[in-house]
Structures are given as structure tokens and as C-alpha cells.
């Protein structure tokens, strides 16, 4: 097994949920620490409401993709996508999951009543895994925008300790990479999760 000390994180969800920004913010934090960073993102056709995953790695990584079984932290915008990407998780890793399901149009068409509950039950039953459940819908409502889901999940991951980064570092990364117009609502989302 690799001796690397750097972070390995996989962020998964549905195209359009703000996945790429989430991975860039973690990368920004590591860059601010003078770490070597690599990320891999899904851009293009798969973005249009399909399953997407971003990978972020610190500490002189070779591959931009996290090998299976090596992610310290899996951040999922949706319970089913967490299950789809579970093979990336390292033993004893942390899963941060938004409990609200995103229903694929295929499910509605085929009359499958997909609400993510089976996926959540599976995640809860996984042995030796730290599971952090986030009520994303409620935080978005309190923060006043559905756009802050990515920041809410990042803040929960920061709080869990799995990313090895601090709230202040995340806030600095937002100030560095996000348009000032959106700073307040994103910082509010962090506050709602952290306190």
C-alpha cells in the first residue's frame, strides 16, 4: 500500500450540482499550503444530468484519479451516487452524504420510486466507515439558495476531520476562487453546518 501522506478525496453527484467547484476549492486549500495537487473532473456530455465524479489528490500524487480503495473521504451530493462510487473508499474512510435523493428521469419513467432510502440504509450498514449525513435541503433553505449544497457538504467534510483542512482554510479558498457576490451565502452555509 502507498505510504503517501496526501489527501485522496472523491466527490460524486449529478451533473450541474456544483461538483467541479467543490474539487477546485479543496485543491485551492492544498495549493495555498504549497502542496502538489492533482484533480480530475467530468466535463462534457456527461455533465448534462448524468453521474459525475471529481477526484482531488494532495501530496505529490502520480495519477490524477484516486485508485479504488484509496479515498480517505467520499463526498456525495446524493445517496445513490455515494453507493455508485463506494469502491473508491479506503477502509476506515469517511463518507459525507446529502440525504436528499436526486431522482433520475429514468426512474420516474420506469415507475421506480427512487428516494435514496435503500442507498442510505446500505451506507449506514457499512462496517468501519465514518458516515456523516447532511440534510442539504434544509441548509440550502436556511442559506437561501440551492446553489450552496456543494459548500454545505464541504463544510461537513471539514468538520468531520476527514479532509485534514480547517474551516478557515475553506473560507479563504472561497474568497480566492468564488465571485464576491456569492461569498456571503456560501459563508452562511459553512456557519450553518459548522455550528
Amino acid at each position: 500500500m502507498s505510504e503517501r501522506s496526501g489527501l485522496n478525496c472523491v466527490i460524486c453527484g449529478v451533473g450541474g450540482q456544483g461538483n467541479v467547484l467543490a474539487s477546485r476549492l479543496i485543491a485551492q486549500v492544498l495549493l495555498a499550503r504549497d502542496e502538489h495537487v492533482k484533480t480530475a473532473e467530468t466535463i462534457g456530455m456527461a455533465q448534462r444530468g448524468g453521474s459525475v465524479a471529481s477526484h482531488v489528490r494532495g501530496g505529490h500524487p502520480q495519477s490524477p484519479l484516486v485508485p479504488k480503495g484509496c479515498a480517505d473521504c467520499l463526498i456525495a451530493f446524493e445517496p445513490g451516487e455515494a453507493v455508485r462510487c463506494i469502491d473508491y473508499l479506503a477502509p476506515g474512510g469517511t463518507i459525507v452524504v446529502n440525504t436528499q435523493a436526486a431522482q433520475p428521469p429514468v426512474a420516474a419513467l420506469q415507475g421506480i420510486d427512487y428516494d435514496g432510502s435503500e442507498a442510505l440504509a446500505y451506507l449506514r450498514a457499512l462496517p468501519g466507515v465514518q458516515l456523516v449525513e447532511v440534510d442539504g435541503a434544509s441548509i440550502c433553505e436556511q442559506a437561501g439558495s440551492s446553489k450552496v449544497l456543494n459548500i454545505a457538504l464541504l463544510a461537513a467534510a471539514v468538520k468531520s476531520g476527514a479532509l485534514g483542512i480547517t474551516r478557515e482554510e475553506l473560507e479563504d479558498a472561497i474568497r480566492e476562487r468564488v465571485h464576491p457576490r456569492f461569498h456571503e451565502m456560501n459563508l452562511r452555509a459553512i456557519m450553518l453546518v459548522s455550528e
Partner: peptide, 22 residues
Amino acid sequence: NVSDQIVSLPKPELPPRPPVLC
């Protein structure tokens, strides 16, 4: 062997999520 580390609990069936028109 990397695959040894993968969790062996049977996964629930998931609806496919291909890209769609917005």
C-alpha cells in the same frame, strides 16, 4: 491486490443515470 479492499456488502440496485436534456 486493490480489489481486496473493496467493501463486500451487497449493493442496492440503483437506477441508471445517463446524461439527459436539461
